[in-house]
């Protein structure tokens, strides 16, 4: 069983929901990423999403765009992100790490080289925003062969008949994009999210995570009532942005702990 599947199974046994925070690797500086990953776990994260910096993050709002730009100023690329994952894995053997990013850095490295290196680094899953199933069946097969879970997005605009197509390739969990828009947008419609999830549950046995636009513990709790996992990205990146080097790790840990407490209430 993959680390991601094991995590969801364990949480289910405890009747708990998964908390999945996101940070961009290399933001605000490369040497901060592994300490931040540990701080997220200390705050109560179940799975970590690590953003791979890209020059043209089309699906991201201003907050994660800025995080990407800060990381790129330090020259952080996919190889560095894999090295950070490997370093984290030396001191944490259980928390799954999912890389989230865009197709081109993976294309530049090559599918085989990437799958091999990611598995070697202890990465558990890959979410590539601009690889819909139509363009990634072969990549998904290579991921599966390397033991990597390929995670796919579903959106409010996804037609019901397409859900099955996506579900067929998806592994680990399904990431439901809770709104029409970019990451960090402010308007999540809880009723709409709740209305969409049953059709997805009907098409797949995989857990469903919900993300985009979840900014506080209360919303996270409400989303967790209908989903298996809650993804929080921009709000945590803001916490990093607004902290000093001295307060950053604590602020991030405390924010995650607040969401954790709300989820477990």
């Amino acid at each position: 069983m993959s680390r991601i599947a094991a995590t969801f199974t364990a949480l289910k046994a405890q009747n708990k929901k998964a908390l999945i925070p996101f940070i961009t690797a290399g933001d605000p500086a490369p040497d901060r990423t592994v300490p931040l990953m540990h701080a997220l776990v200390a705050g109560g994260a179940d799975i970590l999403e690590l953003g791979v910096p890209f020059s043209d993050p089309m699906a991201d709002g201003p907050t994660i765009q800025r995080a990407s730009e800060r990381a790129l100023k330090h020259g952080v690329g996919l190889k560095d992100v894999l090295a950070m994952s490997a370093e984290f894995r030396q001191t944490n053997a259980s928390t799954p790490v999912v890389l989230m990013g865009y197709a081109n850095p993976i294309e530049a490295m090559g599918w085989d080289a990437f799958c091999g290196a990611a598995a070697q680094a202890g990465v558990d899953g890959v979410l590539t925003v601009d690889y819909p199933p139509e363009e990634s069946a072969e990549f998904a097969a290579k991921c599966a062969a390397a033991g990597l879970d390929n995670i796919y997005l579903l959106a409010p605009t996804t037609p019901v008949e397409r859900i099955a197509t996506v579900a067929k390739l998806a592994r680990g969990f399904i990431y439901y994009v809770s709104l029409k828009g970019v990451t960090g947008a402010a308007t999540l419609d809880l009723a709409e999210v709740a209305a969409h999830l049953p059709a997805i549950h009907a098409a797949t046995g995989l857990p469903i995570g919900v993300g985009f636009g979840i900014r506080d513990a209360q919303t996270a709790r409400q989303v967790a009532e209908v989903a298996d996992a809650v993804v929080i990205g921009s709000r945590i990146v803001q916490e990093i942005e607004n902290s000093t080097p001295e307060t950053m790790l604590n602020n991030v840990k405390n924010f995650v702990a607040g969401v954790r407490a709300a989820l477990d209430k």
């Binding site: 601009d130 690889y131 819909p132 997005l153 959106a155 409010p156 605009t157 996804t158 397409r162 994009v177």
Partner: peptide, 8 residues
């Protein structure tokens, strides 16, 4: 090569 939201 687009995010799922735009596929439809």
């Amino acid at each position: 090569f687009v995010a799922e939201t735009l596929v439809a």
